[in-house]
């Protein structure tokens, strides 16, 4: 076994090795002054900076603000998007009314609307939450719409024949049947929410991870820039892993 292809353990070791090699190469390149410390501070310096920023409270504060905005926007998008998606799937008139907007809005780069949101809602949290909601709503509408269109007909007919009211139909049959696809759409929308939040903060300021990142970059505080990027990487990874776990262990979200 050892002589042929590397086993699962061997592959695992290689995965760890490749991460270690990157970190070591980074540290070595910085220590050997291959790049000026301004461009590439050593990994150890970044870790120390991470510790400092966490201790003086700036990093946790920024993270809380950014995550609050991202999840606030995602929440609004899910609420409205699910309703709109189901309405479009169940009602021909609503579908006709909303379809051109979804078709036009889905491929458009939502970040281009940022100046509009700033003009209307200011540069603080409100404009960011609404922009995130605007960016996330299209994948959720489309996911919910195709889920609601794909519901087994006999489920719906059975519901009607048992005399279910519209509300019961919605809460007992349509929503549960769409649940897994809605959750998948939310998994797609979550990184969109993070990207939109961070970018909006970078462009417009107003606090949060992105604003501090841009601020540090302008003052050439490279360790802070790297520390914040590492945190963003970790947050993206952590949230996506959490979503996968939820999908695996909660039956209602499994496709």
């Amino acid at each position: 076994m050892e002589r042929t292809a590397p086993g699962a353990f061997g592959l695992h070791v290689r995965s760890v090795i490749s991460v270690l090699v990157i970190v070591a190469a980074w540290e070595a390149a910085a220590r050997l002054q291959l790049a000026p410390p301004l461009f590439l501070p050593p990994f150890s310096t970044v870790v120390l900076q991470l510790w400092d920023s966490t201790r003086d409270g700036t990093l946790p504060m920024d993270l809380a603000i950014s995550l609050g905005r991202a999840f606030g926007g995602l929440f609004i998008a899910t609420l409205i998007g699910v309703l709109a998606g189901i309405a479009m799937a169940r009602n021909q008139l609503v579908n006709w009314l909303l379809d051109p907007f979804v078709a036009l809005g889905f491929p458009s780069p939502k970040i281009a609307f940022l100046p509009v949101f700033i003009v209307w809602f200011g540069i603080y949290s409100l404009s960011k939450i609404l922009l995130v909601a605007f960016a996330c709503i299209f994948p959720i509408i489309i996911g919910t719409f195709s889920a609601a269109r794909g519901i087994n007909r006999s489920l719906i007919w059975s519901g009607y024949s048992m005399g279910a009211s519209r509300l019961v139909m919605l809460s007992r049959i349509i929503l549960p049947a769409c649940c897994p696809r809605i959750f998948s759409a939310m998994r797609v929308a979550l990184p969109v929410a993070l990207i939109t939040t961070f970018t909006a903060e970078m462009v417009a300021g107003g606090g949060g991870m992105g604003a501090t990142l841009m601020y540090s970059q302008r003052f050439f505080e490279s360790p802070v820039v790297f520390a914040y990027i590492v945190v963003m990487l970790a947050i993206g990874l952590l949230l996506d892993t959490a979503m996968v776990r939820i999908q695996r262990y909660i039956p209602a979200t499994r496709t």
């Binding site: 590397p6 695992h12 995965s15 990142l213 050439f220 914040y228 990874l237």
Partner: peptide, 28 residues
């Protein structure tokens, strides 16, 4: 398989990274 083992953690780690976070770095 070997290439996959080396690359998977990098791809997995950076897949969910909001790429716009790297813009300040690239400006630098």
């Amino acid at each position: 398989e070997v290439f996959r083992a080396y690359v998977t953690p990098i791809v997995g780690g950076t897949y969910s990274l909001p790429k716009s976070a790297l813009i300040p770095l690239f400006i630098l």
